[in-house]
Lab assay of single mutants.
Amino acid sequence: YKIYPYDSLIVTNSISVKLPKDVDRTRLERHLSPEEFQEVFGMSIEEFDRLALWKRNDLKKKALLF
């Protein structure tokens, strides 16, 4: 996945969300650098992957990456 800054990946309720063209809309968190991922989620990507799907989705919603 290509890395993008968190600010360019957050999704708000506005209709005209302009995400970069090559971003996987269903896995926005994968486009964060490991350092920024840790900062946003408070855990590593590996720890995040071990969580239940509902928990990952809940965290993504709170981080505006859903």
Rank of each mutant, 00 (worst) to 15 (best):
V17W: 03
F37A: 02
E47I: 10
L65E: 01
S33L: 04
F48T: 00
D24R: 05
D49F: 06
L9A: 00
S33Y: 03
V23S: 03
I3Y: 09
E39Q: 14
Y6W: 04
L64N: 12
E47M: 11
Y6N: 01
V40I: 10
I45D: 04
S14Q: 13
R27G: 04
D22S: 05
F66S: 08
G42R: 13
E39L: 14
I15E: 15
E39K: 15
M43W: 02
D49H: 07
T12D: 11
Y4A: 02
E36P: 00
W54G: 09
S33K: 05
I45K: 07
L53C: 15
K55Y: 10
E29I: 01
T26P: 03
V40D: 00
S8D: 12
H31V: 01
V40N: 06
K21I: 13
A52R: 08
S44C: 12
I3V: 13
T26N: 14
L65N: 01
V40C: 06
D22C: 06
L32A: 00
N57L: 12
S8Y: 14
V23R: 02
Q38M: 14
M43N: 01
R25K: 11
L19V: 07
K60V: 03
D58C: 14
L28F: 02
D58W: 13
V40R: 05
K21Q: 14
Y4S: 01
L19Y: 15
P20D: 06
I10A: 06
V23N: 01
S14G: 14
K55C: 10
N13F: 05
N13L: 08
R27K: 12
G42F: 09
Y6V: 03
F48K: 00
V23C: 04
T12I: 13
A52V: 09
Y4D: 01
K2M: 09
E35L: 11
L64D: 09
Q38P: 03
D49P: 01
Y4H: 04
E35H: 11
S33D: 07
P20W: 04
L51W: 02
W54Y: 10
L32K: 00
P20H: 05
D24G: 03
V23L: 06
T26D: 13
Y6T: 00
E46R: 10
H31Q: 01
S16I: 10
T26G: 11
L64F: 12
Y6I: 03
K18V: 14
R30L: 07
L19T: 07
T26L: 12
S8M: 15
D58G: 09
I45R: 10
R30G: 03
L64H: 13
H31Y: 09
V17G: 15
L59W: 03
R30P: 01
D7N: 15
K60E: 01
D7F: 14
H31D: 01
K55F: 09
Y1P: 14
N57R: 09
E29G: 00
R25N: 07
L28M: 05
S8E: 14
Y1L: 14
R30Y: 05
L32E: 00
E47F: 09
K61M: 10
L32S: 00
K21N: 14
L9W: 01
L32H: 00
S16N: 14
K55H: 11
D22L: 04
E29A: 01
D58E: 14
A63H: 09
E39Y: 13
L51S: 04
L51P: 00
R56Q: 13
D49K: 06
N13Q: 10
L19S: 05
L64M: 13
E35F: 11
D24P: 02
I3G: 03
L65K: 01
V11T: 12
Y1T: 11
K61L: 08
L53Q: 11
V17A: 15
Y1N: 09
L32C: 01
L53S: 10
I15A: 15
Y4F: 07
V11E: 06
L59A: 06
V23P: 02
R30S: 03
I3N: 04
E39S: 13
I45M: 09
S44R: 13
G42H: 13
P20L: 06
K60W: 02
N13E: 11
E36N: 06
F41V: 02
D49E: 11
F37M: 07
E46G: 12
T26F: 14
S44V: 13
T12C: 12
I3P: 07
Q38T: 10
K21A: 15
V17I: 12
E47R: 08
Y6E: 01
F66P: 04
D7M: 15
I10W: 04
S8L: 15
A63Q: 04
F66W: 14
I10S: 04
D22Q: 05
E29D: 03
L19G: 06
D7I: 15
L9P: 01
D22F: 05
D58N: 11
R27M: 09
V17S: 15
I3R: 05
K62P: 02
D22N: 07
R25I: 15
W54N: 12
L28W: 03
A63S: 05
Y4N: 01
I3C: 06
S33H: 08
L64P: 01
R56F: 01
P20C: 04
V11C: 10
P5N: 05
V40M: 04
Y4R: 01
F66T: 07
M43E: 00
V17F: 04
R50A: 13
P34S: 12
L53P: 10
E29Y: 02
N57G: 05
L65S: 00
N13T: 10
K55N: 08
P5E: 05
Q38E: 10
L28R: 05
L64W: 09
T26M: 13
K60Y: 02
K55L: 12
R50D: 10
W54F: 09
R50N: 11
A63K: 09
R30T: 03
E46W: 10
T12E: 09
